[in-house]
Simulated scan of single mutants.
Amino acid sequence: MTDERPSLLLVDDDAAFRQVLSAALGKRGFCVTAAENVEQALAEANLPEYAVVDLKMPGPSGLVLVKRLKELDAATRIVVLTGYASIATAVEAVKLGATHYLAKPADAAEIVAAFHKADGDETAPVSPSPLSVDRLEWEHIQRILAEHDGNISATARALSMHRRTLQRKLNKYPSRK
């Protein structure tokens, strides 16, 4: 007997989050396969119809997996989740083929809604104030990091910054505004 539910690949390095989200998505009608990193996800034999991919994991980033899943099946609907949201990574995720990009914490209902969001929202609110200096710094670092394929040393050189200073800044959560 085969499972007729739509297949979903969930990739996140946080075991507790992965387990809770897997159960929640299973209750919403998906046949969920979970993985803790990009390598484990790529080892899965079946191509998923849907994927939820964490951006920041040990090893290759979720962007690598987004690109690979789209190469394997262009119809796969992918939502990228991250606790380290930035404009640069959101743009890259969408350019690589992600359907949507959500900042953590995101619940199963938000993720399912994001799978079915095909068009942009022209009514999305525009912030009346500019980003803070801290947030601008975070966005700039993320853009330079993306340009250097996640290489910390090369990014630090490009920013004329000591590598350890850059690592400290990357371990901080970004400013909300």
Rank of each mutant, 00 (worst) to 15 (best):
I78S: 02
T76E: 08
A75L: 14
V53H: 00
L42P: 04
A90R: 13
P48I: 12
Y101R: 00
D54P: 04
V53W: 00
A114L: 02
T82F: 00
E44T: 11
A51I: 13
E49T: 08
S61H: 11
A109W: 01
N46A: 14
K95S: 08
F115G: 04
R68D: 08
R68W: 13
V66Q: 01
A51H: 07
V64I: 08
I87A: 06
P48F: 00
A51G: 12
A98Q: 04
L55A: 00
A85K: 10
E92K: 10
I87S: 13
H100T: 14
A98I: 04
L81H: 11
F115Y: 15
K70N: 11
F115L: 12
E110V: 00
A41S: 09
A90T: 12
P48Q: 12
T82C: 11
L81F: 12
V79R: 02
L65V: 04
A109L: 05
A108N: 09
I111N: 02
V80P: 00
L81P: 07
A106V: 07
A74N: 08
P60N: 13
V94F: 08
D73W: 13
I111L: 10
A103Y: 12
A108Y: 02
K56P: 06
E92N: 15
E92I: 05
T82H: 03
L42R: 09
G97H: 08
A41G: 05
S86T: 15
F115M: 08
P48T: 14
L47T: 14
A114Q: 00
Y84I: 03
S61F: 07
K104G: 12
T89V: 09
P58S: 09
E49I: 11
L81G: 10
Y84L: 02
T76L: 13
A113F: 08
P60T: 03
A75G: 10
I111M: 01
A106S: 07
A98K: 01
T89E: 01
A45C: 03
Y84P: 01
L47V: 15
A93R: 03
A45W: 05
P58A: 06
A93F: 06
A43S: 10
E110T: 09
T99E: 02
A51P: 01
V64L: 06
K67Q: 14
A113C: 14
G59C: 15
K56M: 14
A103S: 14
K56F: 05
A51V: 07
T99W: 03
A45L: 07
E44S: 03
E71C: 01
T82Q: 06
T82R: 01
G62T: 07
